[in-house]
């Protein structure tokens, strides 16, 4: 158990991030906080991928001209996550744009207040 905690602790971080992110998204009434929660959730997944690439005593995957030099950490998940981060940034941008739009229309970014405002529409 202890060994698991010391060697695989990053996975606990993953679980914690996913949990925190999901909780904030569901529980918070504030749209901006929801988006932050979404980002935390995604970060959990990023960490998951990066952790999976880890290799004990692995080196950065730069292959020498003669070959060999391993073991390397896996480069693939890192590349993937680079892409995923870009996707995440664009999503955040669109989401924040929508929040700005909502604020302009309704004067609030709070979900409950918004419901009250819309009930009067």
């Amino acid at each position: 158990m202890i060994e698991l905690l010391t060697t695989k602790y990053t996975y606990l971080v993953v679980v914690a991030l996913l949990g925190i992110g999901a909780y904030v998204m569901i529980e918070s009434d504030n749209f901006v906080k929801k988006i932050i929660g979404m980002n935390v959730f995604q970060t959990g997944i990023f960490v998951f991928f990066i952790s999976s690439a880890f290799h004990t005593a692995g080196r950065s995957p730069v292959v020498q001209s003669g070959g060999g030099g391993g073991p390397f950490v896996s480069p693939l998940p890192q590349v993937l996550i680079l892409t995923a981060i870009v996707v995440g940034v664009s999503l955040t941008a669109v989401a924040l744009g929508l929040v700005v739009r909502i604020y302009e229309r309704y004067g609030t970014i709070n979900e409950r207040t918004l419901e009250e405002v819309r009930a009067d529409e």
Partner: peptide, 20 residues
């Protein structure tokens, strides 16, 4: 409209979690 922005945001949150 304001409604469409709210719906789009809701869709975005759901869609992102789904894709994640």
């Amino acid at each position: 409209t304001g409604r469409s922005a709210v719906s789009a945001l809701k869709y975005l949150l759901f869609g992102t979690v789904a894709a994640s």
